[in-house]
């Protein structure tokens, strides 16, 4: 473990807590893409199947349980509990255009042709594009609540910090995982325009209003 990965995991944890608090306090999922949250639930489910077969640490196991649990609670909030506030008209991204190519790529490009490893690879590739429905929804609605912007900033920062973690691990541990690094770069690049808007607008107290 290193500081970059620890801060990255905490940023990821914070993002999830911000999202749950926004939903619970405002009793509303307005502006949140249910499709992205479904993709995140798939990402965690397919990545953490080794939850019971390989033990890394208490921290690792507890974080995996937390991420899987909260991802399903979030999907439940959107499609059941706060369903009346779910804005399905603006959450129209065709996720099949993500899942099929990512599934095919995971089948072709992976570290080991085994079921668990192909699912792990699928999860890594899917996570890199899972935020697209949410970013698409923000661009369609033309704006995002500031709390949603904070959620997206924390979520985007987590994988950016993981990039630093991989640089650290390469030089100090000789660890290198090309699949995770390439997907992590794609994932972080997708947030760039949002990061720019967040830093130039939200931090000055303005709301984000993407060109609709």
């Amino acid at each position: 473990m290193n500081i970059f990965r620890l801060v990255g995991d905490m940023s990821h944890l914070l993002a999830i807590i911000i999202l749950l608090m926004k939903m619970w306090k405002s009793r509303s999922v307005a502006g949140i893409s249910g499709k992205s949250q479904i993709l995140f639930a798939i990402v965690f489910t397919t990545r953490y199947l080794d939850l019971f077969t390989s033990f890394v640490s208490i921290y690792n196991t507890s974080m995996k349980v937390f991420f899987i649990g909260t991802s399903y609670v979030t999907v439940y909030f959107i499609y059941q509990h706060f369903k009346p506030t779910y804005d399905s008209n603006h959450d129209t991204f065709r996720v099949e255009f993500l899942i099929v190519p990512v599934g095919g790529l995971a089948f072709l490009v992976n570290h080991e042709f085994s079921l668990l490893e192909i699912l792990w690879t699928f999860s890594i590739y899917l996570e890199s594009v899972a935020i697209l429905p949410q970013l698409f929804m923000v661009s369609k609605t033309g704006e995002a609540e500031s709390i949603t912007s904070h959620y997206l900033f924390a979520l985007g920062s987590y994988r950016a910090l993981y990039l630093l973690n991989w640089i650290y691990r390469y030089y100090f541990e000789g660890f290198f995982d090309l699949i995770a690094v390439v997907a992590g770069c794609v994932q972080t690049i997708l947030y760039c325009d949002f990061f720019y808007l967040y830093i130039t607008k939200v931090l000055k107290g303005k709301k984000i209003s993407l060109p609709a």
Binding site: D9, D50, S54, V56, N60, K64, H111, Y162, N165, D177
Partner: peptide, 10 residues
């Protein structure tokens, strides 16, 4: 790549 045959990152 897996350390000791497993992924040790979240």
């Amino acid at each position: 790549v897996m350390l000791g045959g497993k992924h040790d990152e979240l």
